[in-house]
Simulated scan of single mutants.
Amino acid sequence: MKLIILAFILSITFHFLFLTKIESPKEQMYDKPSSSKKIDKSSVHFVKLQPKVKPQKKTEPKQEKVKPKKQDRPKKYKEVKIPKQNIPKRDVIKKPKKIQKRPTPKVEAKPTFTKDIPKKTQREKDIEKRSLENFLLAEPVPLDKELLDDITKSYINLYGEEYNSFTKVQKVFLQKNLKDIGRITQKYLRYPHIAVRTRQQGMNIVEFTLHPNGDISNLRITNSSGYSSLDENTKETIEYAYKDYPRPKTPTKIKIYVYYKLY
């Protein structure tokens, strides 16, 4: 019986100690506001939250700058009047300017003729008169043989009596242009190399028909120089030179001399 009572007392003490250890943390939890302990509503006060107001910057009133009067301004410097002095002026030496000479254009002095102009002879006057008439007339009139120059006369003498059978237009063309045709031919003439080596010289007479379009036909040597190289060279020369010949109004027979001379 005693043992049962002792065991009961021990069990009660153990239970008491155990409960005290467990209850102590529970009491701490009840003390916290987030615990499940009941809150008395009468002790709760509600507060209304107001919106945040940004603090305004204090604006100080602008103060007008007042300019100090001239009298109040401090003087920076004193005005000192310096008496004028008569300072002698220095002589300024001016440097002479460099003048560039422009090149003077060369002017060719034309000779002045002081001699008296020779008077024209009666023969020259007649030639001018007839040439003017030929210019004005539709059909020109040939000049007399006596009024022609010596070279033109020598060319016309090659025709003989055949010259009289030509028309007036042909005669006028021959009188005016035979000399020029001979001069153009001599300008184109080149001495053959073989003839130069063998010292060949001479004169031949060539004949051809000159047409209004500038062509030539019936080219032949009527009087040989005695050397075939010179005769062939004359034909070749005329075949080059005929493009510069004056052109007649009608087909006209041309006869000229061709000279070969070594100097």
Rank of each mutant, 00 (worst) to 15 (best):
D91I: 09
L136D: 08
E108C: 05
I151C: 00
L158S: 01
S165L: 10
E124D: 12
P111F: 12
D150R: 07
R90K: 13
V172K: 00
L148I: 04
I156S: 02
K95Q: 11
K81R: 11
D144H: 06
L136G: 02
A138Y: 01
V169N: 09
I82V: 15
Q85W: 03
F166E: 06
N164R: 07
K78H: 12
Y159E: 08
K95E: 13
L143K: 11
L137G: 01
E161N: 09
P105C: 11
I156A: 04
L158T: 01
V107C: 04
R90H: 05
I117A: 08
I156N: 03
V141G: 00
P118W: 05
Y155K: 05
S131P: 00
E79H: 13
D126F: 01
K89F: 02
K81F: 13
V172E: 05
K153N: 13
L143H: 05
P142I: 00
K171C: 03
K125D: 04
E162S: 07
V80G: 05
D144E: 14
P118R: 11
G160K: 08
K119A: 15
K176A: 14
K106I: 09
P142C: 02
D126S: 07
K106R: 14
D91E: 13
K98R: 10
D150A: 09
E133Y: 08
D150V: 09
Y159H: 11
V107K: 15
I117M: 04
L174A: 03
D149A: 04
K115H: 07
F135W: 07
R102F: 10
K81T: 13
E133L: 13
I117S: 05
P118V: 10
R90Q: 14
T167C: 01
K145Q: 09
Y155I: 00
I99V: 15
G160D: 06
E162T: 06
